[in-house]
């Protein structure tokens, strides 16, 4: 099932306090690409992947969008369904969603429009080999 809005509000709400892996505290709207990269570096077992948006479609679930990514060096195809207000962090750009207006309305979080070709930050488990 898709991720529902009820899972979203608190940590994407403007002003939400985020703890980086270094222990540093930042507001969600102040996060920068380097904060995620550095956090992954000091986290055991997690790695940052570059996930490029290759397609954005309407979902079969009303009120959702289906996002298609190619992920990491392997260029694996991964699809997820999210509400259009769900923010993703785009490298060098910051928070972006399919519906920046709705994100601003619900979370007061300033967002760019997420587009095909954007490279988002995602995480996966670090390979043990």
């Amino acid at each position: 099932p898709p991720i529902t809005s009820s899972h979203l509000p608190s940590h994407f709400m403007k002003g939400a306090i985020i703890q980086l892996a270094t222990g540093e505290l930042k507001r969600v709207e102040d996060l920068q690409t380097q904060d995620f990269v550095r956090s992954a570096e000091v986290s055991g077992g997690l790695k940052i992947d570059s996930s490029t948006v290759v397609d954005i479609q309407e979902s079969q679930w009303p009120g959702f969008v289906m996002l298609h990514f190619v992920v990491g060096e392997q260029q694996s195809k991964v699809s997820i369904e999210v509400p259009p207000e769900h923010p993703f962090f785009v490298y060098g750009q910051g928070w972006s969603s399919c519906s920046p207006g709705r994100t601003a309305q619900l979370f007061s979080l300033p967002c760019h429009r997420l587009q095909v070709g954007d490279v988002c930050i995602s995480i996966s488990l670090q390979s043990l080999n």
Binding site: S10, H11, F12, A16, I17, I18, Q19, L20, A21, L25, V28, L31, D35, F36, S39, S43, L46, D49, S51, F69, V71, G72, Q74, S76, K77, V78, I80, F88, F89, C120, I121, S122, I123, S124, L125
Partner: peptide, 25 residues
């Protein structure tokens, strides 16, 4: 005087999607 209030703190990794491709057999 303002009483200190507890504030929720969220871990950084809760903000980014976990996009792990399913492993081929």
């Amino acid at each position: 005087n303002v009483e200190p209030r507890s504030v929720a703190v969220f871990p950084w990794h809760s903000l980014v999607p976990f996009l792990a491709p399913s492993q081929p057999d």
